[in-house]
Design a protein around this nucleic acid. Structure first.
Lengths: 194, 194
DNA sequence: CTCCTTTATAGATATTTGTCTACGCTTTTT
DNA sequence: AAAAAGCGTAGACAAATATCTATAAAGGAG
């Protein structure tokens, strides 16, 4: 169960973890199953856990005044989930995170994660890389949202995230792109003609 | 000239830097002046420097096929500038960064910055905090862009970034918000009535 | 001071996107 | 098997935003 996580760590930092270090990591992360639609985090709660997806699919979204959901992030295998803002500032989260498919997670307390970062330099190295990638992805997406039309954004999305297309329905992807499902449907129809 | 930087570091990490460490930092950062409109980074170049703004205002933007500029970030005193994506991946930048006002910078090579992070734990601590804040800000902005109308985004912007309003003209702020200057002008007119 | 650029606004019109309702199909639940 | 829920598409209409042109005031450069 923990192999995926250890593989992930060793792939994203070097040298490999010692067996002592591996033991620390394994001890901090508990396996947990989430059924489809089950919440990992609910709006208003402080995010106290970090999850690593071993198998499954999840989403992070906010809900506006009108009750409309806005997908902020989508996650698949080997992705980390948590609301960093809530976890870092200990404030109530503005987001919900739930399972889109039945999902197997490895879950650690945020505090334990901080501990690992301090104790295992390698782990710090890995989270630094993670942070960097998250930020870069976020900047890219922001730039794409600011610069492009719905159509071009969808094209880029198909290009960059083919796996999301296979695992999430269109109305979720539409929300991720910041448009309605109706608009996405139209955009796709247009695209086919070309 | 370096005081602002040292102050910034000590404010964002503890314990304070030793004088040896301070010397390392000072050695890595050279003061440099940028005139209004001068480029710190141009699209197509690999970002090899990191800057810390001592005094002035800068902006980071991309240019689309039609020649329209899209402001991705705005910076004032005590902000860090660089294209993290380009610097981390050593790929040509998609962005331009230029001075909006005459600006005094402290500039270090990306490589030297990496060096400082390795040699001075405190510096690593600070950059980690920086990264975290950047990511959180980026996520917030993305969520705001996905969830809110132009009007609400502007309100939030005024609330969260009053200093930007004082230093950058409306068409720059409009671009930052992902709308045209015309729309921003209308939005403001509406807002006054309330 | 004068000229030129930058900035903000306005109105007319076009385009994009959202909203709402409906329908058919598939999948899930009972 | 029947019922319910989820999903994708469609069309009519509404709302938000972009585009374009014009104007006038303010600020900077020479």
């Amino acid at each position: 169960m923990h192999e995926n996580l250890l593989l992930y760590i060793n792939k994203n930092a070097s040298p490999p973890l010692t067996s002592d270090e591996e033991a620390l990591v394994v001890a901090a992360f508990l396996p947990k199953k989430y059924r489809k639609k089950q919440y990992f985090l609910q709006e208003g709660d402080v995010c106290k856990y970090v999850g690593f997806i071993v198998k499954g699919a999840m989403r992070q979204y906010s809900v506006d005044d009108k009750g409309t959901e806005h997908v902020v992030n989508l996650f698949l295998e080997n992705w980390w989930i948590s609301d960093r803002e809530s976890a870092a500032t200990l404030t109530p989260s503005k987001y919900n995170i739930d399972a889109w498919e039945d999902t197997e997670l490895l879950v650690a307390k945020v505090a334990d994660m901080v501990n690992l970062i301090e104790k295992i330099p390698l782990f710090g190295q890995m989270t630094r890389l993670m942070d960097q990638r998250s930020f870069i992805a976020s900047q890219r997406r922001l730039n794409s949202t600011l610069s492009n039309t719905a159509e071009k954004r969808y094209e880029e999305f198909v290009e960059n995230h083919p796996k999301f297309i296979q695992r999430f329905p269109q109305h979720i992807i539409a929300s991720y792109l910041g448009i309605t499902k109706d608009t996405l449907s139209r955009v796709r129809k247009q695209a086919i003609k070309k």
